[in-house]
Design a binder for these strands. Structure first.
Lengths: 243, 243
DNA sequence: GAGTGGTCTAGACCACCCG
DNA sequence: GGGTGGTCTAGACCACTCG
């Protein structure tokens, strides 16, 4: 038997096979716990070589949709672990995906000498100039986050002239040839001090989800180090772990 | 030119190539930003086919050590983004890795009917019996976390008879044929109520890093749902994001 | 022993990027 | 145009699991 792949679409075959299998699982044609056809069988069904099938399956495994057991087979996972929250997305992208109106006001935009922690994170000498952009972000006009970003001056001349109220810093960074690729963030719980309480409209001592985040470009260059203060009562964060 | 691969070691060739490249990068033979040999060249150097080289490189890319640019080459990443914190590890493993003395005291061990949120997370009917194990965890004898775990009763009979003071729940789960594989957690900042303040030795209203976590076995079955209260002043959490 | 996934080959053509 | 990574083939043998 042979399943036709669209040849007109420019998509690679392994992508078409991956999406075909994903759809069949989503539609319940293959149910949780059930064994898929073997790689050999899939290859002959789709009229491709086994390596191509494996490429499609590997993507589905990474997505947590199926799992392999050596010598046994490939199986549909029980619970479809919800959508991947380890993706690096920005505030405006998130908001758009959830139908929330996003807006930011700039509290501060300046060039300052890098403090020790910022310098280390950005791989600069202490005191080298960094651009500091501090914004207050609103979701549906409710203040949710104070974002205090530090960016190496030398790589992004004239960055401060850009608009930050409706466009994310990362979007502007692409104009300078840097594509944001990964980030490492440290997360803590803190109490709101007077400044944060006032900006976020909560009481002093109220809960704040605090993050320190270093953002790296495609080639691993650190391009942003940010202190991030999120209102504890309206903000939560989801992460996925695996071993 | 040809580089000899150890043929005696049972390791797959792509693993040997991966580790060989990783070592060369660590030793500075290839420096950050530098282009590696092309896949064709590496293949002939190691005396393997190009697909095998690609398998080795793909692992290094996933680890953030190198990156590919279509039509250009494969390059060593600038900053070696620190060790991967998206790995699912348990309290005792973490502590051992960091040289901390870990200990837990059991506050509560009981079988109760599943409340709504627990039932949904564990894919049970509301009211089905679940094992609840509430522990207070100490790092170097300082209380850091209250851990309130819920586990489906039917899959883990007699689990409550096990020891939880020095052995993690997940270790016991392997006796029942379940290997923990992935988890999804929601993270929030909260204020300590009276109970948590007392248990963790902090003031009422002090910061708590609060997590709700669902843990899945290899096949995707949910095996644990936990409420986790971490002392804000001594606990932080690091995550890695990428796009 | 039969069936499965894990590894590997020796090529091929294409799409992309750069000078 | 030349070099690179992206995709793909049509096989092969091995390691693992199970009945």
């Amino acid at each position: 038997m042979r399943v036709e792949l669209t040849t007109t679409s420019g998509l690679p075959r392994y992508v078409q096979i991956r999406e075909s299998l994903r759809a069949e699982i989503a539609q319940g044609i293959f149910k949780p716990g059930q064994k898929l056809l073997s790689e050999d069988e899939l290859a002959s069904q789709y009229g491709v070589s086994r390596m191509t099938v494996r490429q499609a399956l590997t993507d589905l495994i990474d997505a947590g949709i199926v799992y392999r057991r050596h010598g046994v087979g490939t199986f549909v996972s029980q619970a479809h672990v919800e959508r991947d929250h380890t993706k690096l997305t920005n505030f405006f992208e998130d908001a758009e995906a959830e139908g929330i109106i996003a807006r930011a006001t700039v509290l501060m935009g300046e060039v300052i000498p890098a403090k020790r922690q910022v310098a280390i994170a950005l791989n600069l000498e202490e005191g080298e100039p960094v651009i500091r952009i501090k914004t207050l972000r609103f979701a549906n006009d409710v203040p949710v986050t104070v974002h205090d970003a530090h960016i190496p001056c030398k790589s992004f001349p004239n960055l401060l002239k850009k608009n930050f109220e409706r466009t994310h810093i990362w979007t502007h960074m692409e104009d300078y040839g840097y594509r944001v690729k990964r980030a490492v963030q440290k997360i803590e719980a803190r109490d709101a001090d007077e400044e944060m309480a006032q900006l976020l409209g909560i009481e002093i001592g109220g809960p704040i989800l605090y993050k320190e985040r270093t953002v790296y470009a495609e080639d691993g260059t650190p391009v942003e180090f940010t202190y991030c203060y999120n209102r504890g009562d309206t903000y939560s964060l989801t992460t996925v772990l695996s071993r």
